[in-house]
Design a protein around this nucleic acid. Structure first.
Lengths: 222, 222
DNA sequence: TCTCCGACCGACCAAGTGGTCGGTAAGGGG
DNA sequence: CCCCTTACCGACCACTTGGTCGGTCGGAGA
């Protein structure tokens, strides 16, 4: 968004036009934010465009003035909101040069804690949407899989960094650990969805730590 | 089904009526089987009753003659098909008295292998439906959570059995292991849904084994 | 043979669905 | 002052949805 703003500013130094763009983008942003909330809580196919508009006291006309279609709207939500949130919640926190396993542990601890408090956990939102669109909408799936891929790549490189720094055993299969960690995270979020989220989070984290211990460098023989 | 058959036979020894019940149940069974397939591949809310009927060349009348509503239909699918399949795929295989961790490993190996071949993996079907109905339909969610609970309970007792038999360390937290194992399984199925299922299965299993190793009795000191 | 009943048909309904389109009010530029 | 663009309105459209209901038909019982 900031990027577009600057670009328009470059091409057209007129202040008024910049104001207009700001208004346009504010409206679109509002639609996207409530759209994501509704899509998340009721599902994409089970949320009508009217539902979103009602929430905002806007009309159909406004919606189709700003977006080509419901699908286009959703893709923009993915690109504008989902990607960034996942980046800041699940990728950025493991980018440091400290102990990789510690970083992942704290990252998951934080992410699951927000989930316990019923706030939106974008890692789970992603899993939810993957389940909903899988086999139903290739185009959207491609965008969702791209996010997954970014997450995976960043995990792999963090793990490799950890091996290099001596925080992980040299024989650890980075790709495998990444996949496993992602699986576990997405799975626990499904299990936390309805029943005893706090207790389940605690149990999950204890076993994640146990698993991570098995990845630490083996100082003893063999 | 067999049970109902026998019950009807008991209360009414008339052969003709048994035949009639058989026909009725055969039709209902057919509807449920294709219903589950469609609900699984397109989602519950995104599959219309007409879609199912078209597949079977049956009419609306037939459907609402046998079932009260779409929701009732789905609940019966859960009770008649989902519960049994999950039992035979994920619970029965870990009931033995051999090494619990071996049993779980083989069970998952088998279940994921059928998933790789694009067959229906009912463990994943369950996760899918939980995601779809979570926060949208309490009644259905209750039924789905019940299945999850049964799975959990059986896992816990299998793990406890393993501790008793000396296959697992005495200090292992059975509940935590159960939750963790379930999470991992449900998660990997989401990740296997679209991209590189076979490779991901392989990586997942390797790390599951690594984790399981950390649960084995510690023969060394401390 | 007549009657009755279970199983099924298909036209129909109200309530939505995504999407279109002819408007219109505001407000800046000429 | 007019004019044109932007942002939005809301009636409307074709279509689908879950669900209803009067009817049909074959076969079993009397």
């Amino acid at each position: 968004m900031v990027l577009c703003y600057r670009l328009n500013g470059l091409f057209n130094p007129n202040l008024k036009i910049m104001d207009k763009n700001l208004k346009r983008m504010a409206t679109m942003q509002r639609m996207q934010v409530t759209g994501l909330h509704l899509f998340y809580s009721k599902g994409y196919y089970n949320t009508s465009v009217d539902d979103i508009l009602k929430e905002l006291s806007l009309s159909k006309g406004a919606f189709y003035y700003h977006f080509e279609s419901k699908e286009d709207f959703f893709v923009q939500i993915i690109e504008n909101l989902l990607v960034r949130k996942i980046y800041s919640m699940l990728i950025e926190p493991i980018e440091g040069h400290e102990d990789t396993l510690d970083l992942i542990t704290h990252c998951f601890e934080d992410a699951l804690e927000t989930a316990v408090h019923n706030e939106m956990d974008y890692g789970f939102v992603l899993g939810n949407f993957i389940n909903e669109f899988n086999g139903r909408n290739e185009k959207v799936m491609k965008h969702l899989n791209d996010i997954l891929k970014v997450w995976e790549v960043n995990l792999v490189s963090a793990i490799q960094r950890g091996k290099f720094n001596g925080h992980l055993d040299r024989h650890v299969d980075a790709e495998a650990v990444a996949i496993y960690v992602m699986s576990a995270y997405m799975g626990i979020r499904t299990l936390m969805a309805e029943t005893a989220p706090s207790a389940r989070k605690y149990r999950f984290m204890s076993q994640l730590r146990a698993y991570f211990k098995s990845l630490q460098p083996k100082t003893t023989t063999v």
